[in-house]
Design a protein around this nucleic acid. Structure first.
Lengths: 118, 118
DNA sequence: TTGACGTATCCCCATATGGGTATACGATTG
DNA sequence: CAATCGTATACCCATATGGGGATACGTCAA
């Protein structure tokens, strides 16, 4: 088996930086494809492909407007990601506490002053 | 170019469900590889490979203990993910507001009947 | 109608994935 | 010393990626 499809879930879809960029742009409001092409400086087919992935995961909605297609953000599929990482919030906060402990031990050992930097 | 390496950043590393599972287990405390093999029911080489990815992204630390290798969680690399998704928190909350608006419009339409489109 | 525009799709490629199996390597035990 | 445990690595595969170029398709303008 190869890597999971990018369309498997929001986790995979959002792993691609360009896709995050697109969402960041859309966060400001609805946009036609060409706007994204210009703003991101990517080839149009590329943008369309990324948009397709985002669509399949439900991260964007489309609306036909004449010959343009307006894409709009839908953050809902991001919630599982948020919920998952949120549980680790302490883990990088506490990290500093642990680091402090280690540093304290080192200090004691050296027994001679020595406020390390970082 | 193919897809970005799984070791490119935490976003990619964490896109794999098994890797998230591993982190979830380690969140409870340090563990040797075999514990993970048993707990996750995966082949040992697979676990080692996933751990390697996590290591390269800095999501886990290792410590040699006799012939075992104790893996410990380090949530710090998850912060960028948290920071990014956090900005979209409103986006799935507000979603419901927008839905309310749509529903309200639909109601109005049903009552007065007016323009088509959506 | 023809033509131009805005997008999506098609085909081609290099890459590296997750999984499997076999094996290598260090540490411990006998 | 040899045998064994705990892990990591080496290979082999099928898969589908992100990017490029060309083109098809639908919509609107002459």
């Amino acid at each position: 088996m190869a890597r999971a499809a990018t369309t498997a879930d929001a986790f995979n879809a959002v792993a691609e930086p360009r896709r995050r960029q697109i969402l960041d742009v859309l966060a400001a409001g609805e946009r036609p494809v060409n706007d994204l092409v210009t703003l991101l400086g990517l080839a149009q087919p590329l943008v369309s492909k990324h948009l397709r992935v985002l669509r399949e995961v439900g991260l964007v909605d489309v609306r036909d407007e004449g010959r343009q297609r307006m894409y709009r953000l839908n953050g809902q599929p991001l919630k599982p990601i948020y919920d998952w990482v949120k549980n680790y919030e302490l883990s990088w906060t506490r990290r500093f506490d642990q680091l402090d402990v280690v540093l304290a031990e080192l200090n004691e050992k050296e027994h001679e002053d020595g406020r390390g930097d970082e």
